[in-house]
Simulated scan of single mutants.
Amino acid sequence: MDLTFPAAVQNYEALSSLMGLMREAAASGQWDQLVALEKKCQERVQIMRQADARSSLEESERARKKALILKILADDASIRQNTQPWMEKLQWALRNTRQERKVRQAYTPSR
């Protein structure tokens, strides 16, 4: 039995690896690394769209692809769980900055 998967499945393997790295970066608060990895994921997804349209898979290949998709979704959920508090803090800081600017503009005399 040949355990070498076609390019379509290998693309999912690569995306799964990238998502794992993104999950680790999010868990450790490495936001710049997370953004860089997200760009690589987007590039990989573009490649995958083209490859998926041209490929037909055997049953074992479809099963592997399904397992990879489930892992990718689990990693995505973990990434969101780790980034949500950071995003809320960022949104709070931006709102406060806007409000502070509006108050300053309202109470600063015109020259």
Rank of each mutant, 00 (worst) to 15 (best):
L21K: 15
L18G: 08
K39I: 01
Q33D: 13
R95M: 09
A77T: 07
L15N: 05
L73M: 10
R64G: 00
E88G: 00
E58T: 03
S110Y: 11
K66H: 09
Y107P: 01
L21M: 11
Q99W: 01
V103N: 06
S110V: 12
D75K: 01
V35R: 12
S28A: 10
R23P: 11
G29S: 02
K66T: 06
N96L: 01
P85T: 00
M19F: 13
E38D: 15
S16W: 01
S28P: 03
W86Y: 09
Q99I: 04
K71Q: 14
E24G: 13
K65I: 00
L21G: 13
Q81K: 14
M19H: 10
R101A: 12
I47Y: 15
A14V: 06
V35T: 06
P109D: 04
Q33G: 09
A26K: 05
R64S: 00
Q81T: 13
W92Y: 10
E43T: 13
K40R: 14
M22W: 04
A26T: 01
D76G: 11
L70Q: 12
I79L: 03
Q50G: 14
S16K: 10
E59M: 08
Q50M: 10
L21P: 02
A77N: 08
T97W: 03
E59S: 13
V45F: 14
